[in-house]
Amino acid sequence: MLEQDWIWGFVGGLMIGGAGALFLLMNGRIMGASGIVGGLVDGSGRSNWGERLAFLAGLILFPPLLVGLYDHVDTRLTDNIWLLVVAGLLVGFGTRLANGCTSGHGVCGISRLSWRGMAATIAYIAAGGVVVLLFRHWLGVI
């Protein structure tokens, strides 16, 4: 079963990369989720807010239209409110401080052979690994 997950992962990955390629070649923008949203909420992206909003609208509203697929996905998100708040704050602050997240640094940065993108990706995967080790295997909270 696991192997099938890898195939779907790869196919979904191609779609994600295709979306980034479209955004770059048509609009001349880097597809980074945290940058697109962050620029909207902190006002730094005022000059192209329309594009940002349109991207977000597609991102939020299109997946639910894939009924059958959408309804059968279980996101298995925790309902521990403290974990959610702390994680949300860390993700929001961290991605804006680093100027990118999994899509911006990971997908768009590494594919441009950017050292910054690679270093960021190594840093967030390593930190995530340590947190899972700590909170799952030592403390047992996640």
Partner: peptide, 8 residues
């Protein structure tokens, strides 16, 4: 960011 990503 990675720490928050790992948490949830």
């Amino acid at each position: 960011f990675g720490a928050g990503w790992g948490l949830v």
